[in-house]
Structure formats: C-alpha cells, structure tokens
C-alpha cells in the first residue's frame, strides 16, 4: 500500500497543536513525532516552529532531526517549513549572535531594522512571485498572519515565491521543487492559510 503518512515534526518547541488542528480540519490524520525514522517514511512533512534559532538548531541536531531533514530535501520529498522552520533552512541566522543553520537554502536570516516595530506582528499581504501549486485558489496579495523579529534573505532570487512589505521587502514564501517554506503561519491565517496547507498536501499526496 502506498504510504500517505503526514508527519508534523516535534522537536520540543513550536506550535504543534495549531498546525495539527489545521491539518485535521482539512480531513487528514497527521502524526506528530520526534522520531527521525518516522519523518523519513512520511509522504508529507511539516516543520513548524516558534522560538529562537539557537534553541531550534540545538533541538534539531540533538534529536537527529537535522540529518533527516537534509536527507528528505536531498531526495526531493515534500517538506513545508513554517516560520522558525523556514529560517533554519538557511545558511545561518543573526539571532542571538550567529547560529549556523541547515544550509539547505543559501542565504542568511537577519534582524528587522530597529526603526520598525518588532516583532512584525499581524496580517500582511503576500505578493506572489512565481506560479506555484501552493498558491492555487489564493488571490495575489492575500493577507497572512506574521509574527517574527528576524527574516530570511535567500541568496538565490529564483527560490523566492512570495514577498511582503514591512519597511523592508521580506521573502515571506520560498519554494524549490517539493520544498516549500513560509515566514507567516498558515495555521493562523484563516481560510487562505488552510487552503495553502491543502494545496501542499494535494501536491505531496497527489490526491483530491
């Protein structure tokens, strides 16, 4: 039987319950796990995240999850990384000094300029920069919910799927093959957010 497991990575932080609730609302039964082997067996993986970059990287490394994520991406399998989950995909983060991250997407995570209210908290528009299945049925410049003080800046502009204006232009969504990541929280972005998860799962599972 074809494996259709949807896994939400639990690395001791993050808003797992909100993400799981969103996936359940879409009619799926996600598995929340901290076991790397279950992640490697999944058909679709979600890497959620809130918290600090240093702690997140330490948790991911100590649990062996870093290696599993690198393997998933190397094999071109579907991964959706959210907020801090997106930031750790980059080469490194300025948060709390300098933290080496996974290096899947070359680039760095920078602090929002001090002239701006921080965190960037609330609903802001995502300008779609590429045609991608995660945007199916979602209007351009739809609002999504953000809460972050640092932002990712990929070196390669061709991976930027969406941008958001907050005094600086933020790469708010990136996509590279089956890898998708958003700085905003789809699980907190109302119907547009649910639609984006549904699009990802349809892309990953090839159904519905």
């Amino acid at each position: 039987m074809e494996n259709k497991a949807i896994v939400i990575i639990d690395y001791g932080a993050g808003n797992l319950r909100s993400v799981a609730n969103a996936i359940i609302k879409l009619g799926y039964q996600p598995k929340v796990t901290g076991r790397a082997e279950e992640v490697l067996e999944a058909a679709a993986v979600i890497l959620p995240g809130v918290g600090a970059a240093g702690d997140t990287m330490r948790n991911l490394t100590e649990s062996g999850m870093s290696r599993a994520i690198l393997q998933l991406v190397a094999e071109g399998r579907p991964l959706f990384a959210v907020c801090m989950g997106m930031q750790v995909l980059l080469s490194g983060s300025e948060e709390g000094g300098w933290h080496q991250c996974l290096g899947i997407v070359p680039g760095r995570v920078k602090r929002l300029p001090p002239t701006l209210k921080t965190p960037h908290m609330g609903w802001n528009q995502v300008k779609q920069r590429m045609a991608h299945p995660i945007f199916d049925g979602i209007p351009d410049e739809a609002n999504f919910y953000f809460v972050h003080s640092y932002y990712p800046e990929p070196d390669d502009p061709s991976v930027v799927a969406g941008t958001t204006d907050y005094g600086v232009s933020i790469c708010s969504a990136l996509a590279k093959g089956n890898l998708v990541a958003t700085q905003f929280h789809p699980e907190k972005s109302g119907e547009c957010g649910l639609k984006m998860y549904a699009n990802f799962l349809r892309m990953a599972l090839g159904e519905r």
Binding site: S18, I24, K25, V147, S189, G193, L194
Partner: peptide
C-alpha cells in the same frame, strides 16, 4: 476553540 478557529 483552536480546533475550529484558525487565527491567533
């Protein structure tokens, strides 16, 4: 609430 309401 969090099972059916997808805002903060």
């Amino acid at each position: 609430v969090s099972e059916q309401v997808f805002i903060p």
